[in-house]
């Protein structure tokens, strides 16, 4: 950067023309056709879907790479930093609302739909249906056992909660300029997240093989796997974000004043943490 950087001049940084949005759109279009083909067992489905993921990965690497270069080139001033903070907050709010739809579905099913199916109004259709929870509904006769709360899920709760603590220690280390401590505790956080995911996969295998609890196990299976599944997906995304932060830390990025990417990943991690707590209570315990 030979010219005085935008951050110093007080001007708001406006990026140069970029082809990454277009690549992103191509990825989405390919993914949509690929997923449609795959879900409907069409022969071209898989290849197109994989192509979509490849284009998406290229876009993610390219676009985030450009952002990281701009950030390290100190093109982002204080104003841009504030924009990032607002936008990450609103993005997390949108994620909250996404989960709200699925929590709402669980609440509606438990408090309204299932009792209604067991009510006197439905006796003509389903005379033997007892509206208890968990249930796979009046028509599904495939018995299953629900997932208990105090085995793996409780361990997972402890793992995620402690990962929030380790991440905060890492953040404080970054603020104090203690790079060694930062690397250690950030790596510990990622490790805790990965252990959570491994246990979650083990739990799913256990559910399918021993409890006969499947995605298709009526409304219980639907809400259980969709809620925990989307949460697990978000933990995966969060862990990838933290892993990218670790790589950047190892490359010497970030200092006490300039590290919003790290903070954004941390916010996101705390968000998946809170979702898990709600999930642990309403999906596993109640």
């Amino acid at each position: 950067m030979s010219a005085p950087s935008t951050a110093d001049s007080g001007k708001y940084f406006v990026p140069a023309p970029s082809h990454w949005p277009l690549v992103g759109s191509a990825a989405l279009l390919t993914l949509a056709f690929g997923a449609t083909g795959t879900f409907n067992d069409l022969s071209w489905g898989w290849p197109v879907l994989i192509a979509g993921f490849v284009i998406l990965l290229i876009m993610l690497f390219g676009w985030f790479g450009a952002v990281i270069r701009e950030s390290e080139g100190r093109l982002y001033g204080k104003n841009v930093d504030t924009s990032f903070r607002w936008s990450m907050s609103w993005f997390i709010f949108s994620e909250v609302m996404f989960f709200a739809a699925f929590f709402g579905a669980l609440g509606y099913a438990r408090l309204h739909a299932v009792p209604d199916l067991g009510s006197v109004d439905s006796k003509l259709l389903w005379p033997d249906f007892a509206a208890t929870w968990p249930t796979a509904g009046p028509y599904f006769k495939d018995m299953f056992s629900p997932m208990g709360a105090w085995g793996i899920p409780a361990i997972n709760t402890a793992l995620l909660l402690s990962s929030g603590v380790t991440l905060t220690i890492a953040h404080h280390a970054l603020l104090d300029g203690q790079r060694g401590k930062l690397k250690l505790w950030l790596a510990a956080t990622i490790l805790l997240g990965a252990t959570f995911l491994a246990l979650q996969i083990y739990e799913y295998a256990h559910a399918y093989s021993e409890l006969n609890l499947k995605l298709s196990s009526g409304i219980f299976g639907s809400t259980f796997f969709m809620l925990t599944g989307f949460h697990g997906f978000h933990v995966t995304i969060g862990a990838i974000m933290l892993a990218v932060m670790l790589v950047r830390v190892l490359r010497g990025h970030f200092d006490a004043k300039h590290h919003f990417a790290f903070e954004a990943a941390a916010w996101y991690w705390h968000f998946v943490d809170v979702v898990w707590l709600i999930l642990f209570v309403v999906v596993y315990m109640l």
């Binding site: 579905a105 099913a109 739909a113 796979a136 509904g137 599904f140 298709s216 009526g218 409304i219 639907s222």
Partner: peptide, 13 residues
């Protein structure tokens, strides 16, 4: 994928 969010037979609505 066999979920029954909107299928009363599976306890959905």
């Amino acid at each position: 994928f066999g979920t029954t969010f909107f299928n009363a037979a599976g306890g959905g609505d």
